[in-house]
Design a protein around this nucleic acid. Structure first.
Length: 271
DNA sequence: ATGACGGATCTAATCCGA
């Protein structure tokens, strides 16, 4: 493969939105699609439908057991996947990470697909166990990524943190709102820097421009109010970031029928 | 000004998302 076209998308139920995934595969023809919040046990993943469209290679870490109906990540590919690995974070097996390797220009590229915990409402880890879990997850990413990212790769997913001022609709009003608190954003940046990877979104879109990938279902008119956040990310090893030829946020998908509240993020890498 | 929406689940009301 001489070019890698990669998409990450929090689908918010892959079974409910199977048709939207098919539409994306047909419209964008990515080589690899990373999904989060599949909300789907592995045995119920609609693999046959995607295989028909040419995506016959799968890496799944679906929800199971006590996490029925929540979480779940998947990598779909039209090129072979090797080194498929599932890992639990914070001592849980809750479907938040899957890795697979593809080949670009004869060299392996590891793809790390994450669904970071949302963290609940109350931004105090002493009062809110979900926020405590999120901070612990980010801390574990900090210790995990340096070794995992030694092999050149790409970290993608719904990372559930909007690190910069123009990654949220109001920096001032969001500082005490989970996804943009300093406790999260400092850990988030530390984890990325420990990996030595590049924030591809901000390599392509300057820091003074707003860039969002998620808009709440609760807004009456998401486009008009534009109270979004940048929660979905693509981080790339420096040598891959230098070969990135495009980066796009598919905002139009927010208006597809019965949409996800997240939109797909597309990145292209040349060999 | 906080939106008051939408998904899954032991189908009715609850948990969760962020």
């Amino acid at each position: 493969m001489q070019r890698l076209n990669l998409i990450t998308w929090n689908i918010n139920s892959v079974r409910l939105r199977q048709r939207l995934v098919e539409r994306l595969l047909l419209d964008e023809a990515p080589d690899v699609l990373c999904l989060q919040e599949t909300k789907c046990p592995n045995e119920q993943f609609p693999a046959a439908a995607f295989r028909k469209l040419g995506y016959g290679h799968l890496a799944l870490n679906g929800n199971s057991g006590g996490h029925r109906g929540y979480h779940g990540v998947a990598i779909l590919s039209r090129v072979p996947l090797s080194d498929v690995t599932v890992r639990g974070f914070c001592g849980k097996t809750d479907g938040r990470y899957v890795r697979a390797t593809v080949t670009l220009g004869g060299a392996p590229v590891a793809i790390h697909n994450f669904y970071v915990p949302a963290g609940g409402d109350e931004p105090d880890p002493a009062l809110n166990p979900k926020f405590e879990h999120k901070l612990a997850f980010l801390d574990e990413m900090l210790s995990f990524l340096p070794r995992a990212c030694e092999a050149p790769g790409i970290v993608v997913g719904d990372l559930n943190v909007a690190p910069y001022e123009m990654d949220v609709w109001s920096h001032r009003q969001m500082l005490r709102v989970i996804s943009h608190t300093p406790e999260e954003t400092t850990r988030f940046e530390a984890a990325r820097e420990a990996a030595g990877y590049v924030d591809l979104g901000r390599r392509f879109v300057p820091h003074h421009e707003r860039l969002f990938t998620w808009w709440s279902y609760r807004n009456k008119d998401w486009r008009k109010s534009d109270r979004g956040r940048r929660l979905d990310h693509v981080w790339a090893a420096p040598q891959l970031a230098d070969r990135a030829s495009s980066f796009r946020v598919l905002r139009e998908a927010r208006d597809w029928p019965r949409p996800s509240d997240h939109v797909p993020v597309v990145a292209t890498f040349e060999a």
